[in-house]
Simulated scan of single mutants.
Amino acid sequence: MTSVIEQCQPEPTAIAGIAHATWAGEAHGLAQLSVWRQSLAPGAGTPPHLHDCDEAVICLGGEGELHTEGRQQRFGARSILVLPRGRVHQIFNIGTEPLEVLGMFGQSPVPTRRPDGEPLPLPWRS
């Protein structure tokens, strides 16, 4: 099904400091692509996790830090984070303003797991 979808604002989730909106995914008929819009409050971070698909994250605004493979890399607006499948990672807001990101995934729904391989329940999934 082809469709035009209104872009909703991210809403607070059960993960402290993270607001989320799924802009496109399985509910829209997609199987090989998901698009998430997220806002991380100052000091907030994602839990350590990995995906069974490739991920690209575009930073729309704010200052962040990516923790992966024993490294910490700072990033800001106009940066893109390239996260191949199976890589444990965390994203943190290290600035004083919200960190605004757009994540694109090569699968829908997005398979998300803890570093030990156990599924990571995401609060925006019903």
Rank of each mutant, 00 (worst) to 15 (best):
L30P: 15
L30A: 14
S34C: 13
W36I: 15
R37P: 04
Q38K: 15
S39G: 00
L40P: 01
A41Y: 01
P42Y: 13
P42M: 13
G45D: 04
G45H: 08
G45L: 04
T46E: 12
P47T: 07
L50Q: 08
H51G: 03
H51C: 06
D52T: 10
D52I: 01
D52M: 10
D54H: 07
A56E: 11
V57C: 10
V57P: 03
L60Y: 05
L60T: 11
L60A: 06
G61K: 04
G61L: 02
G61C: 04
G62C: 06
G64V: 03
L66N: 01
E69W: 02
Q72D: 13
Q73E: 07
Q73T: 06
Q73A: 06
R74Y: 04
F75N: 00
F75C: 08
G76W: 03
G76I: 01
G76Q: 03
R78C: 03
I80N: 08
V82G: 09
V82W: 13
V82I: 13
V82E: 10
R85E: 13
G86A: 05
G86H: 05
R87Y: 08
V88Y: 07
Q90T: 12
Q90L: 10
I91R: 03
F92A: 12
N93L: 10
I94Q: 09
I94M: 11
G95I: 08
T96G: 12
T96A: 15
T96Y: 09
E97R: 03
E97V: 07
E97N: 07
E97C: 00
L99W: 05
E100P: 02
V101W: 04
L102P: 04
L102Y: 01
G103N: 00
G103E: 00
F105C: 11
F105P: 03
G106T: 02
Q107A: 14
P109T: 11
P111T: 09
